[in-house]
């Protein structure tokens, strides 16, 4: 495990003894833990470069190591100020780990980081899904008009088959995220400056694609939930 990246924190001072900090986590002089600076993102706090392909075992090891530093259990007898830092840091650390561990929330986080607070997930229905969703809605409407005959059984069968397809599609989209992650890492890795306009353009293109994938996943999830609820509702209503 490499030591955390020293960025703008390298010249910050300990809140307690005001000596210069060598580590953003703990003051070597008075051994007090340090508050998590607002401009430190999840990657920085975990000592990771801003890359989207993450080794999950390494991430877990970093999370556990920092938990040993910040968990409130170890500050039961400490002064209130330090207890408060432990609580806030531990809560943020837990959130950081949960966010980066999961591919979807990781993608959502990088979109927020790169595009800023004004970022809003796209609301456009991915065009390739529109037909599929329309068909499923028709099948579900059919189910409520038929009852107790062979046609109903056919509709149920068709819906179940659709659900299976959508599941597969949803899974494929998750793997699509891996492709975007690799592309992002490649662009960042090759760039001399991430702020160069040509680099920014490439990154923003990847981010847009990522946003679309997330939107598709969300739609797929909702429609699968709807099918499940409809099938369950149908089986409990007089069957």
């Amino acid at each position: 495990m490499s030591t955390p990246k020293q960025t703008d924190q390298s010249h910050s001072l300990c809140w307690n003894c005001h000596s210069e900090l060598e580590s953003p986590y703990k003051c070597v002089r008075c051994v007090k833990i340090q508050p998590w600076a607002d401009d430190t993102d999840y990657f920085q706090f975990l000592g990771l470069p801003r890359r989207l392909q993450i080794d999950l075992d390494d991430l877990e090891a970093r999370f556990l190591k920092l938990s040993r530093i910040f968990h409130p259990d170890f500050f039961q007898e400490s002064e209130f100020a330090e207890q408060d830092i432990a609580l806030v840091n531990a809560a943020r650390l837990n959130k950081a780990y949960a966010t980066l561990k999961d591919r979807e929330t990781r993608a959502g986080y990088i979109l927020e980081l790169e595009l800023g607070e004004k970022y809003r997930p796209t609301k456009n229905v991915p065009p390739e899904l529109a037909t599929s969703i329309f068909e499923v809605q028709e099948l579900m409407a059919e189910l409520s008009t038929h009852s107790g005959n062979a046609a109903e059984q056919e509709t149920i069968k068709a819906l179940k088959a659709r659900k299976e397809e959508l599941h597969k599609d949803s899974h494929a989209r998750l793997e699509e995220l891996d492709v975007h992650f690799a592309a992002y890492d490649k662009v960042i890795g090759a760039a001399t400056s991430p702020f160069e306009p040509s680099v920014r353009r490439k990154i923003e293109e990847i981010l847009r694609a990522m946003d679309q994938t997330l939107a598709a996943r969300l739609y797929l999830k909702r429609i699968i939930q709807n099918i499940t609820a409809t099938l369950e509702g149908n089986s409990t209503n007089g069957h």
Binding site: P72, V88, A90, A91, R92, N94, K95, Y97
Partner: peptide, 11 residues
């Protein structure tokens, strides 16, 4: 706002 099985402390 906080899902079940979220590690605590959390906010």
């Amino acid at each position: 706002l906080i899902h079940r099985n979220t590690t605590i402390p959390t906010s």
